[in-house]
Nucleic acid binder design. Structure first.
Lengths: 246, 246
DNA sequence: CAACTTAACGTACAAATAACGTTTAGTGTT
DNA sequence: AACACTAAACGTTATTTGTACGTTAAGTTG
């Protein structure tokens, strides 16, 4: 009874990345299968995902997918919505691919969607190539297989909402970053402009954002200080906050 | 192929109600089945829920459950989390009940949890009795079957968070209500005290909260004005807000 | 060392919040 | 009808936070 798929259940992952100016999404190529209608050109990319095994934790399935693509364990990841319409697999090509891939007589799949925040790094490129995966700018992603366009939009809506509640930003930025990168991230994700001086004042009030003695490199003007996220101070803060509710 | 259960998938609903002073949850009795261990006294109540049918929308399954219990169609309801641990059915009694109930060799069930906001009304009492259902004050609910205690806690956490974002309050209050009821609702759900005068000022700024010419009845002192929620004005507001993001 | 560019700091005003006090309109009692 | 009682409804002020700008400082390049 090992590694048997539950034919009705899958996980799909929306992996977000940020590269200073753009919010990006990781999509993987969906191979053509024999018998497909070759005239349908949409659906050639999809979100990373698969059916889950009979004894598998949902979170584990998602984690494993993410680890395969990024070789990283420590990723911010969260289940955000279930997509379960009986008719969510519209395209015959998609259904055929799924059946070929799994060798199961699949009709309906309910998928649990996760989103994850990834620090885009150069040394990922090889690994991604091997999985036929690539980063695409969020606004340019369309025509994904299944209902993955919709899943992506919901994931983005969720990210937007969450970012205003908790400091997710540090999961998308490198360890050391400038305040301007941080601002840019907020502007891109929330699709909103911020006054640089006010943004700076506001964000610096956060105790978990700490200055370092490093500075920006290879710029043709005054280099900015680099900051980092202090997870301990954040946890400390959270603990202090929750005391109010005792 | 009609009304065939998917043995791995269910919905569970957390129905919240409010009765002026307390946040309440609707639980239903889980009947004893032959072969049970009668010494186990926990798990005799559960959240409303059931397996879903092969061609059924998740939302429909949840809606139907809610309609059966409240005979109301127009209920604020939202999927909020999936509970899918392979070992989430811990109690042998629970598993046995599930198998007896469904006549299926069930091992693992992934459940999609919904929460819904109900206006508690007197004329519901009969209907609830027929379904062995009853309202319990949130803090007193414990020892539910399956992992329903956990589901309930997550639902409550979710409600708390959502209430600070959108005006869910009107789904829990009767059509006409006093500002004090409204305040009490906020205080109970958010577990936080508010200054009556400041609360009043803040909430009255909301255009969707409108005064009526009705007043509180049967009180032994100056009766308060009754207010109501103006859904149109709220929708209008939402539309205006979203124009900023164009 | 001057010109340039962006980082980093500062100020003034408006709006929102928090912590209070006061008046008013009902009910029930003498 | 005058009174006390109770909670509703309204008001005031100091403080904090947010917004919209102007100014100075520190590095790079030629």
């Amino acid at each position: 009874m090992e590694n048997v798929y539950i034919p009705h259940l899958s996980v799909d992952c929306v992996l977000f990345g940020f590269d200073e100016k753009q919010l990006k999404v990781l999509v993987v190529k969906r191979d053509r299968v024999p018998g497909e209608n070759p005239d349908l050109h949409s659906g050639l990319f999809k979100l990373p995902g698969r059916l889950i095994y009979e004894d598998e934790f949902l979170e584990d399935a998602a984690s494993k997918l993410i680890k395969e693509l990024t070789s990283s364990d420590d990723i911010h990841m969260q289940q955000f919505q279930v997509f379960g319409n009986p008719n969510r697999i519209q395209s015959p090509n998609d259904l055929l691919w799924l059946q070929t891939q799994t060798r199961l007589p699949i009709r309906r799949v309910v998928t649990i969607a996760f989103y994850a925040l990834i620090k885009i790094e150069e040394d990922l490129t090889d690994m991604l190539e091997r999985h036929n995966a690539r980063w695409i700018n969020l606004p340019e992603v369309k025509g994904l297989a299944f209902d993955h366009d919709e899943i992506l939009q919901e994931a983005y809506a969720h990210l937007k909402k969450e970012l205003t509640t908790s400091p997710l930003e540090f999961n998308l930025l490198p360890e050391y970053f400038t305040l301007n990168s941080l601002q840019s991230l907020y502007e891109v994700i929330l699709d909103q402009h911020f006054d640089n001086r006010n943004f700076r004042k506001k964000i610096l009030k956060m105790s978990y954002l700490v200055e370092t003695d490093k500075t920006e490199q290879k710029v043709t003007h005054r280099p900015a200080k680099l900051y980092r996220f202090d997870a301990d101070k954040y946890a400390q803060n959270q603990r202090e906050m929750s005391l109010f509710f005792l």
